[in-house]
């Protein structure tokens, strides 16, 4: 069995599989991209996500803020991001699967804050994206803009990326701020049925994914700053991952609905960007 790593964006990888790249297993940033493999290529059943525990996500993360040392703009929560003069760095959710989580975390916060009043939630999102000076096409580009270009006051990032940035660039430069409400990001894994059956590798592929839930793999995930789902491992590393109030994608109606409502052409994100430019 050969493991080929690709660090391209989640959507790009899903398209490779749809177009015939013979992957036995995929591990992507969001379930929507694996849904797309099921829908467009029929390589696995549509209900793939129920086959493994925790929505097929062996480890999880969440969306946090990375701010500059000393937090000069006093950013504590989402409300501080819509203030005039605060520059927010987040990639374009239309080209970056990971950034869709950033957007939805902000949406979930506003939705809760305004008691599901969509008009006020949209106004909040418009104010937020008015503060976004650059829409990088991927998460790595956004991190580079913030860390190396010195652009912006706050970077919306996956917690694991933020912890890694904090570790590799030193706590002297950046610190993490955890908002009062965020979203549980679930990067899912799946066996591609039609490919493993052709390759006769189903046993190995399934074993590999099952192993991701084992204590050793869970500790490894924690070491790389993902939140483990195994309760025993999670208890051991709870200092590193403070408890947070998290909504999940099901609370927002699932990926298919979120994609339709927010990210297809002409949907809410495009409308917000239109309004933010005026």
């Amino acid at each position: 069995m050969k493991i080929a790593q690709s660090h391209g964006g989640s959507g790009k990888q899903a398209r490779s599989v749809i177009d015939g790249l013979e992957a036995d297993v995929v591990t992507l940033a969001l379930a929507y991209d694996i849904d797309a493999i099921a829908e467009h290529a029929g390589l696995l059943p549509a209900d793939w996500q129920g086959r493994l525990p925790n929505n097929s996500s062996p480890y999880t993360s969440t969306i946090v803020f990375l701010v500059r040392k000393g937090n000069p703009q006093h950013i504590k929560d989402w409300d501080d991001l819509v203030k005039p003069g605060v520059a927010v760095i987040t990639p374009n959710p239309k080209t970056s699967g990971g950034a869709r989580w950033n957007y939805l975390a902000a949406w979930a916060y506003a939705d809760a804050k305004f008691g599901h009043d969509e008009k006020q939630t949209r106004a909040f999102m418009t104010a937020l994206f008015k503060n976004v000076p650059v829409l990088d096409s991927g998460a790595r580009g956004a991190t580079t803009s913030f860390v190396q270009r010195g652009l912006g006051d706050v970077l919306l990032a996956w917690e694991n990326e933020a912890l890694m940035a904090e570790q590799s660039f030193g706590k002297d430069d950046f610190q993490i701020v955890r908002p009062s409400l965020s979203i549980l990001t679930e990067p899912p894994v799946a066996v591609i049925d039609k490919v493993v059956d052709r390759h006769k590798t189903r046993a190995e592929a399934e074993e590999y994914l099952k192993h991701l839930y084992s204590p050793e793999a869970q500790e490894l995930a924690a070491k790389h700053f993902y939140r483990p789902t195994d309760p025993a491992v999670a208890a051991k590393v709870k200092d590193r991952f403070p408890a947070m109030t998290l909504v999940n994608i099901a609370d927002l109606g699932g990926w298919q609905k979120a994609q339709q409502t927010h990210f297809t052409d002409g949907a809410i994100f495009d409308q917000i960007m239109g309004a933010a430019r005026q």
């Binding site: 467009h40 239309k94 650059v134 829409l135 580079t144 052409d265 960007m273 239109g274």
Partner: peptide
């Protein structure tokens, strides 16, 4: 793509619009 800033209607290049469509499996 890195220098463009990619703001809709202002600094989006046509190849990015193609990538955006692909990202939606369109």
């Amino acid at each position: 793509i890195f220098i463009a800033g990619n703001m809709p209607g202002v600094s989006e290049i046509a190849p990015l619009m193609i990538v955006t469509k692909l990202e939606q499996y369109d």
